[in-house]
Structures are given as C-alpha cells and as structure tokens.
Design a protein around this nucleic acid. Structure first.
Lengths: 229, 229
DNA sequence: ACCTGAACACCGTTCAAGT
DNA sequence: ACCTGAACACCGTTCAAGT
C-alpha cells in the first residue's frame, strides 16, 4: 500500500522560496527496478480511487504515476491517452453497477418489489460514487468516440434493466409496451434522479436523491401498471 | 492559507490543428483603443457561442479574448475566474430554458396538452444546445460552490414547472401529491431523457431523445393521473 | 517489452506597468 | 477604471534513449 508522498507539486501561488527549495531531485528508483506487476490494472484502480476521492478534475497522469512510484509516461504503455484511461474507468463503473442491479433484483425475489429495489440500488450507486458515475456518462468524452469495451459494459448494465422489465411483462405486471422504449424510459427516470441528486439540484444533501427515488419509482410503476387496472 | 485554485484541466491536448493555426501574432490593437462596449456581455456571448459550437473543452480564456480582439487577461476585469464565467453561461442557459418552457405552456393552452408540450420543449432545448445544457448541470463545477445568480436562474426554470403542476392539481387533472416532490420527479424524467440523448446513450442520433420524450411524457402523465381513474 | 527523462505546446492566473 | 504583456506553475503528449 503506497501512501502518496503528500504535497506533490500542486501548491500553487507559493513565492520564490519554493523555487529555491532543493526540489528533492528525482526519487531515483533503484536502477533496474520496474513495476512488473499488473501495471495496467494498478493504474486503473489508482485512477478510480482519485476520481472517487477528489473528482475527475483532480486526476492527472503525472499524479497517478507518482502514486504508483512510476514515471509519468509509463501509462502510455497501457493506455492510448488520458481519454482512454477514463473510458476504462467508465467501463469498470458500468460493470459494478450491473452487479449491484442484478444483486438487488435477485435478492429481491424478481417481483415488482425487486424492481423497486433495483431502482433504489441504481440511485444509491450514483450517490455513493458521484464522480465515478459522472465519468460513466461522459461529460468529458470527445463527442461520439467510445471504445467497444465501454460500449459493451454500458449495454450490459442496460440489459439488466431490460431483463427485469421483460420478466415483469411476461408476468402481466406491467404494460406490454415495446421493451427497448420502455426500458429507455425507466432508465431515464432513475438516471435523472441520480443526476439531479449528484448536482445538488435537490438541495445540499445528495441523499435527497434517495428520498426522491422512492417517490419516483412508485410513480413510475403506477404509470406502467395503469392500463392494467 | 493555501487557497487551492480550482484545477481546470479539461482541454486535453489540443491536437496539431491548433498548433498549426496561424497564431496571428498579437493583433496589436491601435494603441489606446480599448473595447469600451459592454465587454462583460461580449465575453459571455462569445463563450456561449464557442461552447455551443465546439463544446466546453474547447473554451479557453485566451481564445475568447482573441475572438474579441482583446488581451487574454482582460476577462479578469469582469469575471473572477474561468469557473465564474461558466457559471454566468449556465445562468443564461437557465433563463433561456425558462422562457422556452413558459412559452410552450402558455401557447399550449395551459392544459394537459400544454404540459406535454412543455416536456417536449425541455428535451428539445437540451438536444439543440447539448454543450450549453451540460454546462448548466455543472459536471465541471468545483463541488458545491454556486453563485447566487446561477442559483436563482435555476430555481426560476424549476418554478415554471412547479407552476404548471400546481395548475394541473387545481384543475383536478393529476394526483395531489406534495408539489416539490412531484415537480422533482417530473424534472428528473425530462432531465434523464435529455441527458441520455445528449450522451448518445440512446443511439447515434441525438434526436432519438425526442422520440423517447414522447413515450416518457405519456407514461409520466399516465402515472400522475392514475389514482384519479 | 517496458520504462525513463527531457522537451514541446498548450493552459489559467498573477502582477507590475501602461493609458 | 480598464487593459496589456511578460512571467509562473501546471498540464498531456512525444520521442530518443536506456534496461
């Protein structure tokens, strides 16, 4: 476990005294010693940790390199560029989200109550990992470009929702609307609640999202059941 | 003291296109000639234009200065920093959005059809100005900080929604749930549809959001009416 | 194959100085 | 009051060179 040797170089606005400081001339790793572990994965996890703790803006390639005691360009052996690293972070987020959703669905008994639990789990994930969640929904991504792994991970999470809805339709619990459209709608509802909560639009307390999620899921389900009543 | 200046660091690595640009070595304005118009507003509009055309990542203070034929530090006379400029951009977006919503509501006859039109207008705004819309929901903003003007503008847009719902409740057209919660839910639905469309999660065509919006508003209204049937 | 360190072009921000 | 231009510290990325 590496504890990062704290004030890296960030302390801006400090006068010339700093410039005059010794500079701690290059940590100088024992020559010939390379990382040799699974550096790619280590970089990914370090990036996720930084993002969760301090937000995307605080993520610098130099910083993650330093955290792992590795040159700041070593990363380019494993990722095309910073965007590529962020795509990997996003993909991992979608996989974790899918696991959370599936877990809520299955441990909830796969009924309408489980569906509700799934909705809550979705919002909880976002509220618990706001920065990571935001990276998943690429405010940062250069338009359109999106690698296949990320696309697959996103589609996988969406599929968990589609499967649950399909089961509900088969059970006659909700309207038999086109599955993709209906799933898109449900996704939009939980995504909207999550984003508003994260952006503090629901008030200073991000957990306000959990409360709204309860109302939203209830109203949502009511709407999907309506024609059956 | 160590006031941390917000780490900007979007704008990854402009490729060679930019480096290859003429550079137009210091426009050298006729000495003694200053802008003297409403520079603050000119800066704001230039920023909005750049954001709408090329996205937030393409916005640089140097760039907007150059666009207006003004030094790249002139901006600091009118905005505290880049974040402050972006907050002003966001506030203006909320005011335009509010106008769009109110227009849809009123010209729609203030009934349930008008409410539907409002939902569509919301999504249309986002799909038409994706980058601007994203700035409004501060993926970029250093957590929590939010100036009063922006807060007021956001609350104003939300109020348009609250007013419409209050009218519907009074008319007995929808459930009489707590207004703030119900409005938060409706907002979440349209916001979710808008964000998914913008992020191309609904497919490569952003106008897929308009189609989903139709289904969403219908399902939404059905849910809000349900207990009245 | 994997990593380093210097170099490059680009940022936001500060500040003494000009009008 | 408003603006300039040089300077500063920080970036992501490239590349020749090391092991």
């Amino acid at each position: 476990m590496l504890t990062l040797s704290t004030p890296p170089a960030y302390a801006a606005s400090m006068p010339s005294r700093v410039a005059a400081r010794p500079r701690s001339r290059a940590p100088r790793k024992p020559a010939g010693r390379y990382h040799h572990g699974d550096l790619r994965n280590a970089l990914l996890q370090a990036a996720v940790a930084t993002i969760d703790r301090e937000g995307v803006e605080a993520l610098t390639l130099r910083g993650v390199g330093e955290t792992l005691g590795v040159s700041r360009t070593a990363l380019y052996r494993h990722f095309r560029d910073k965007t590529s690293l962020l795509e990997a972070v996003a993909a991992q987020g979608f996989r974790t989200l899918r696991a959370d959703l599936t877990c809520a669905w299955e441990s909830g008994g796969a009924g309408i109550a489980a569906f509700t639990a799934m909705g809550r789990a979705y919002v909880r994930f976002a509220v618990t990992h706001p920065s990571h969640y935001r990276v998943m929904f690429g405010a940062f991504r250069p338009q359109g470009t999106c690698d296949d792994d990320l696309k697959a991970a996103g589609a996988g999470a969406f599929q968990a929702l589609v499967d649950a809805l399909a089961a509900q339709q088969s059970a006659g619990a909700i309207r038999r609307d086109p599955l993709q459209t209906q799933a898109g709608y449900v996704w939009a509802v939980v995504h909207g609640v999550a984003m508003l909560a994260i952006d503090r639009q629901l008030g200073p307390d991000p957990s306000a999202g959990n409360a709204l999620a309860d109302y939203a899921v209830e109203a949502l389900v009511t709407g999907l059941e309506a024609r059956l009543l």
